[in-house]
Amino acid sequence: MANPAETRQSSPSSTAHQLRSLLVRLAADPGDSYAKEQPAAGLLSALVREIDEVILPREILLLSDGRIVATVIASNRRLVDLRISDVSMPPIEGSPDDVARSYAQAISAIQERAGSVTLQRGGRAAQSTTSSSACSAQRLSDIAQTLGQQNLIEKFLNLSQAQALGWVWHQTAQAGQRQGGAEEVVSALERLGVLRSEIQSSKRVSRQLDHAKPSCTALFLAPDMMAIIATDHEDTLMMAIPQDKVLSVMSGWEACCK
């Protein structure tokens, strides 16, 4: 399948709109453009816009309290390097989506650590590197949207954890697994995950129903205990809760989805 960045075509009206936006932003004081607190998705969106406008190798600085916390090197509308404390990220192996996800997660982590982060256009970059760890602005944008949705599971866990007897969170292949609670409950949840995969692969289960939608399922786990299985894209969170907490936990899920 072709990379969306390679196949993207602009209509004359959208090109005119992009050009107008670019001129407005170029005319503005660079220090004012992003000098306000913004969530990670907002920072990523702003960064994607910057990268998308870079042709010749250029630095984009991420500042916190006037101090440079990271430097992005962009070239040819691609992110080619991310330097945190003057150290480049190690080469990222995997698919283009994996590369983009690593950059997006690293940038989100910078935002979380630093709090308020602003962007500033830097000078020309010393060299144009076109490593395999480069990723297009479009792919970074696509992954940034996915990251925003993944927060749903984290939000749900934070909200429900106090009611859980144990939980297991299978994140993306790169991020691995997190868990908490009593050991025997975690073991039961891991067994539930195995059984569910086995049964799912042996049954004719529609791929269309709830495709790409987050969902939360409550089912029997053990006497007086229910399992909650929340999924969103590649993330799956399994929790064990007392049976009388089901409605409260499901209400929490519904609130997180709003």
């Binding site: 987050p214 969902s215 399922t217 409550a218 786990l221 499901m250 519904e254």
Partner: peptide, 11 residues
């Protein structure tokens, strides 16, 4: 055992 299942989606 367990005769009820609930599945919640955004819709």
């Amino acid at each position: 055992q367990g005769h009820s299942v609930i599945v919640a989606t955004p819709d």
